[in-house]
Design a protein around this nucleic acid. Sequence first.
DNA 1: TCAATTGGCATACGAGGCGTATGTGAGTAG
DNA 2: CTACTCACATACGCCTCGTATGCCAATTGA
Lengths: 197, 197
Amino acid sequence: MHRPRKEMIAETRAKLIAAARHAFGTIGYAEASMDDFTASAGLTRGALYHHFGDKKGLLQAVIAEIDGEMAVRVNEVASKAPTRWQHFVDECTTYIEMALEPEIQRIMFRDGPAVLGDPAQWPNASACTASMTNHLTRLQEEGEVVPELDPETTSRLINGASSQAAQRIANSTDPEATSKKAITAFKQLLEGLRKKP
Amino acid sequence: MHRPRKEMIAETRAKLIAAARHAFGTIGYAEASMDDFTASAGLTRGALYHHFGDKKGLLQAVIAEIDGEMAVRVNEVASKAPTRWQHFVDECTTYIEMALEPEIQRIMFRDGPAVLGDPAQWPNASACTASMTNHLTRLQEEGEVVPELDPETTSRLINGASSQAAQRIANSTDPEATSKKAITAFKQLLEGLRKKP
DNA sequence: TCAATTGGCATACGAGGCGTATGTGAGTAG
DNA sequence: CTACTCACATACGCCTCGTATGCCAATTGA
């Protein structure tokens, strides 16, 4: 029976990721002391270096976890819209909603790109943009969206706009009103992708 | 005569900003050692702390300088388009072109937001988005753009898309082709803002 | 069951970066 | 000419990171 051993290791990894995720998501990557947040998980930096190599490696693991969760949430929304176009729009607005959460905003959109570089180059992450790219391609095949666009490029631009929208809402003094404005503007931009009858 | 004194001070500030700008733009903010780049300017950290308070303060000064230069370049392009709509589109593509420069990309779009937070909250910067907001407002008045949009929000979203476009081009193995794709997709998004006849 | 070995994790150490407190010398005012 | 201001340098301590090393429990093979 070699389960307990494996389980302990998995638990250690999970505890480190959870502690780091909390620290990165609140005080930020640069301010997060490895001694501090490993101690808050009842461990030391020794465990961290053993499992993740360095601080960046741990950040990558945290990002992979969050990205997985985001993909799940996008896919949940994905199956409830009447038309494919509506489906696509819902996906985008879900993305904005997720980007409203401070932890996601901080880790995925601020510290992550600053420390690891362009998200498009991340090996594991970006599961949700892949989904958007997929939908765009199908919408083109169905003649709903203008054909001369590169789907992946387009979905990246949309991601950029989404995260700006989310930041604007999050930093607003009146999130309700700002949210309406941002979503309106965002949907209007998306209209540009549709074929006119 | 108290000019020489003032001039020496201004020169010191300029040297520090230049050295920091180079260091931040190449190896990045986090990796840039204050001892190193102040020494490369023939100074020490003493001067830095005296003039800018801390490392963040210096970054702010660097950003203010770059933002000023960007605004100038946007305004230069601003006066050469036949229609106001074209003018607006040119402004956006100029923005993308500037974002292609590694120094601007790194400082303004990666390290800057990570260290100082949402650019929309920066006190001095964002002169160029102000210009875009201005044009959007006029385009609405002229009936060229749909009226239900908030101009500033919209220009922020466009900024987000622009910087993504730029990053995509910059990290591409075939910048020429990627540039075409990105600009096409970007213009298509902008079309969504126009009133249909 | 027992020895050998693996490997998960902690401890110890050194290097470097930051911020502050303090020193110094040149310019400036009265 | 004296005293003060202020731009900038120097010196010190703290914190954080990365590595090298050590220890102990779990696993494996006989």
